[in-house]
Design a protein around this nucleic acid. Structure first.
Lengths: 346, 346
DNA sequence: TTGTAAGCGTTATCAT
DNA sequence: ATGATAACGCTTACAA
């Protein structure tokens, strides 16, 4: 037996409290909000007024239990250390929010074991769908989502061969095109500085794209001209130093796996008195806001990450509404030629 | 009456299924995971094995309802458009995750009405605590959290006068110190370029800090040397152009509200052939990774945003554990003098 | 130590 | 159109 009087002073109101205040049953309160057409306008008014007066908000857990719907989605991302995924998360959150769905985010730090724990936590919270950045978490995670029948989508890279639904650009093709662009400018000795490929098949695809485009011209990256390491300006600087120190012909162009690395290369070239683009062309990837303002402005590739987040959320939402939506086609990456790339000087 | 056989093939297992498989009651399954000491080791083993075999994960809504604990926290942030808040969100998520708490994030885009909807959605999901960036959402939001007895903390700025618990640096004092640093270098004509103050009292505090430090020396910012606008490189460039175009003495130093703006000022100074720091000192705020690598390297201020997220989450967690933790003291902002600031040239 | 049974707050079903 | 009532899955007194 509980003391209703004193409890009403302390605990949050429940639907039954609203119901009593409005002179209806709890069921009608539920309908007034979830199926407004099924309740008479003036009754609905009364219910809404009562809810407002009491400051009632529906209790998600109770609702989730009865409806078998949590109204929660999840986003699994490898890192927030660089700003790359921020716009994506924001777009996911906003698109889901428009449908009344809240977003849980988890940062795995590129650790498959952590990602597994994150997904389990999400499933325990009852997430209805999950957006996953990349597919480098091991199969267990995907098997788990499949077993639970939780729709998911892999973002930040489109791949027709993937066994998962993917949304994003075709990383292989995009870097093939970057390479072809440099080839068209006359470059024949091309270097590449990539972030680490470990647990990141997007990078692997990009490297393959470069190598393939070169191979089609009978060319290759000299091993001395290929560097792989951390996602940082510092690594870009070190890598250029290493490349310049190598024997044999210098590269006339360097493809960087992201703008941060490209900034490092650009800075180091300045330091070393190497003219960009006359002696060395540099191209980045991501179109960081700063890239348009370096000297010279950095040539790079832009991806609409907000759109990617929207498409991903929409794809998942369509599934939640019971559909079997078609996967959108690969997104287009836009090559933005600026001052850091130019024709090779003979 | 339901067909148990066919349902077991499709639906996720429940605690009762695990119980039957382990030959115990549902209560024991619950205890095996939540109060392991209260169940005999070999029984616990059996339960855990059965759960594993069935792939059982507890159903958060059921659990939340029974325990009156959602194990969900919320983060309310104004934007993810710049990378500033990313590290903060990551730290919140990781610190909460260690205690088994998932994080819902919401992006309000500096819109108080949107923030209100976000908070309501969070409360409906049953968040146990909320970390809020800034306090420029209007009182209604804070009143709501208070009424619901949901602990919250305001981050990204410490203020002894605030009616809310705050964690972060003292923005007023930090910009006072930046100004004093420039005064020590001999600067007397100092300009400032700040992001918009609308719905951002942190910026207001920073501007006040600069003005106060100047006033203590009998100085002031000339109106022509004060610009306020968007958080962008472009705005930094435009602002410097405007400042240079103004009549009267030019500033010998410019304080920028963030590194993006400072990049713009630095770039524009280059373009205009103004020597930095000989003719113009420039200081930013945020310590963007790029700042150490511009030419000259940008003097700026570093804040440990990861630590800020950890402190915030810990403060909230302590409250969830029933304590009344003391608010940590203001965090220290670290002035990092680099090449873009120097003594004024006579 | 373990089981039984009564909630937790909402919604869906079935009457009326 | 509305109300009564039985789930939803889990936890926690209380009993044994």
């Amino acid at each position: 037996m509980r003391d209703t009087t004193s409890e009403l002073l302390t605990r949050s109101p429940r639907a039954i409290d609203v119901a009593r205040a409005a002179g209806v049953s709890a069921a009608t309160v539920s309908r007034a909000f979830n199926e407004p057409d099924k309740v008479q306008p003036h009754v609905r008014q009364r219910v809404i007024a009562a809810a407002e007066a009491l400051g009632w908000l529906p209790h998600g857990a109770g609702s989730a239990l009865a409806r078998r719907r949590s109204l929660i989605a999840g986003a699994l991302i490898p890192t927030l250390a660089n700003g790359i995924f921020a716009a994506h998360v924001a777009a996911l959150q906003e698109t889901f929010a428009r449908e009344g769905i809240s977003l849980i985010v988890s940062v795995s730090n590129h650790d498959p074991a952590q990602a597994m724990r994150d997904v389990q936590a999400m499933l325990t919270r009852g997430v209805e769908a999950i957006a996953v950045v990349g597919e480098d978490f091991g199969d267990a995670i995907f098997d788990l989502m499949t077993a639970r029948k939780v729709p998911y989508v892999v973002t930040h890279g489109f791949s027709a061969e993937s066994r998962h639904p993917t949304i994003g650009i075709d990383n292989f093709q995009t870097f093939q095109e970057i390479t072809q662009y440099l080839l068209r400018l006359g470059h024949r000795t091309i270097g590449m500085i990539a972030p680490t490929q470990k647990n990141n098949s997007r990078v692997t695809a990009r490297v393959a794209g470069v190598r393939t485009a070169l191979a089609e011209m009978g060319l290759a990256i000299r091993p001395q001209h290929f560097c792989e390491g951390p996602w940082s300006i510092q690594f870009g600087r070190e890598s250029l130093r290493a490349i310049l120190a190598a024997d044999g012909p210098r590269p006339t162009a360097i493809i960087c796996g992201n703008d941060q690395i490209a900034f490092g290369v650009l800075t180091e070239a300045h330091m070393q008195g190497i003219a960009v683009p006359e002696e060395l062309s540099i191209i980045g990837f991501d179109d960081d806001p700063i890239s348009a303002h370096t000297t010279p402005p950095l040539s790079t590739v832009n991806i609409d990450r907000t759109l990617m987040g929207q498409l991903s959320a929409q794809y998942l939402l369509a599934q939640l509404q019971g559909g079997t939506p078609a996967l959108p086609p690969p997104m287009t990456a836009t090559l933005i030629p600026r001052g850091s790339t130019g024709a090779v000087h003979p």
